[in-house]
Every structure is written in C-alpha cells, then in structure tokens.
Amino acid sequence: MAQSIWVIGQRGKSGISRATREILGKANGLAGGDSSAVTGVYCGASADGVADEMAQSGAGSVITMTDPRLETYTADFYVSAISHLAGDRKPDVILIAATADGRELAAALATSFGGGAVQDCTELEWDGDTLLGTRACFGGNRTAVVENCSPGAKVFSVRPNSFPVPDAGGGGVSAEEVAPVLPEGDPRVKVLEFIPDAGGTINLLDADVIVSGGRGLGKAEGFKVIQDLADVLGGAVGASRAVVDSGWIAYPHQVGQTGKTVKPKLYIALGISGAIQHLAGMRTADTIVAVNKDENAPIFNVAHYGIVGDLFEIAPALTAKFREVLQG
C-alpha cells in the first residue's frame, strides 16, 4: 500500500500558496499518481475554497481545521492542531513548504513527535520504502541526502521553487472538517502586525525571475536599470551584500549566505563579482545570466550565459529586447 502523505496547506496572496501547490504536485508523483495517498491539511480561520484548490493540485482528500485562533500562524496552535490530528490518523510523511514559518513549524512538529525534520529539501525521492530528502549544507557548498528515522510521521520541509506547479485538474473534493484541538487560553505568541517589504512587493523567494545588482552599479541611482529590467520581466530585484552595506538598497533584497537563498527560473546578475557568499544564495537558480566588465569575475564560473561588458549598456539593451519580445 502506498504510504500516506500529508501536505500542510499555506495560504498565499490569493488562495493556497504556490509553494504548497508545487509540493502537492510532487506528493502526487511520490504516490505514483495515486491521489488517494495524498491528503491536504489546512488550518485557518476559514477554509473557503481550500479543498478544491488543494485537490486541483493533486490531493485526493482534504482535511480542514478552522478556528478564529488559527487565523494567523503561531507554532503553539498549529503544532497542537496538527499533532493531535496526526496522532489519530497516523500519516507516514508530512510535507511543509520551507517558508520561515514553515521551517519553524516543521522542526517544532517533528520534535513534538519525538523526532526531527529534514529541512529545506530541494529534492525528495524514494529509496525503497524510505523517503530521502536532498538539501544544501555549508551554504550550498555541499549537498546532503538525508534519511528521516523519526518515530511516527516523517516531517520534511520543501524549499519553494523546487518543483513545477502542477497543471490544475480534478477538484470537486469536499473537505472533511475536523475540530482542532488547541491549547487553553491565549497564545503565548501574539502576532501584532505585518509590514510588507518596501519596494520589493514581489517576494524574492516566490519570484520566477530575479534581477540583481552589485557594486558595479556605482551608486544607489544605478538600481534604476536593474528595476527597469525586472519590471519588464515581472521579476524581483535582488542585491549583493556590498550594495546593501553601502545603503543603496534595503536588506530584504540581499541574496547570499547572510541574505536570502533563492531558486528562481532565471537569475540575472549585473555588476556582481560572484563572491562565494553571494553564490551560496543563488547558485541553484535554474538559469543564471551574468553581466560583468571583468571577464575573470568568478560569477562566470556558475553562470550559464555570460556577457562581458558595461552593465549600463547591456541592461537597457536587454530591457528593450525583452519588452519587444514579451509585449510584442
């Protein structure tokens, strides 16, 4: 019998998050297309539309737990609800998108089962009956394949953008509603406010395209050419630490060991030398384009396409060409 896989649903800007849909698609593949082995589990204040959306991405059944106290994620309440449900239903595997909250939930939930989570996996595959997760160590300088020997459910968090978003199909599943078991009283952690990143309304971690600038931009105003190219591609703006430290752009844009680890479909680095700490955050992008006036810049060692030249000439030419092609 196929092992039962749960995918914990997270909400995005509209409906179930893209990362959750990617994981549902992957879970369906891991179950050999037997969607009855894949269950979407959702906690929230309300669960309107959730069952259909999860089913369309590959879940054969959906369980929802709704309560006003589950409106925003807090570890105490989510761990309580999910661990009680898992205690009853005994899933074999639990997959969670490796967002900040998702990684926190994965580690806390796995610990509550007496085991541990394999975090931030970029690949999942069976070795017989054992699910293995592939993940980066040493900031991407090593790749580890990890087995989860935890008692009970094996928890893995999965890095967003690791798997394709499945084509929507199916649906028409009605959710089983379960009353969540929650701790008494107020949560020990109270969420007061969320402030979206200034400028970067597009999340680096969710973006298909990232255009990043480094010290080669010369000054803060140089980001104009980066922004223009990002805009035409519908992408997000990234940066090296050097320019964040210089105050040309805010920290949330930083890519690298001490910034964000990203895996877009396309990463365009302009005026970035390619220091090991920067590479740690972007080397696993599907396609990397580098523009640098120094032909020996280390960024070319990880790039798929390289252009030696002045970014202030190349970037506008790229913007113009992409605009022509994409907007006809």
């Binding site: 989570a117 980066a136 790749t143 580890a144 394949v145 030696v308």
Partner: peptide
C-alpha cells in the same frame, strides 16, 4: 532522528556560454 546518506559537493557548473557582440 536525521541521518545523512551522502554529503558531496554540488554538481559542477555546466560551463558558461559567453555571448559576444554589440549591446
């Protein structure tokens, strides 16, 4: 509870294709 089966350098880059010409 977690055990590494392997721990290796990531696969080497596929090689960079340089594109030349005017902007």
């Amino acid at each position: 509870p977690t055990r590494m089966r392997s721990f290796d350098p990531p696969p080497p880059p596929s090689g960079c294709e340089m594109i030349e010409g005017t902007p």
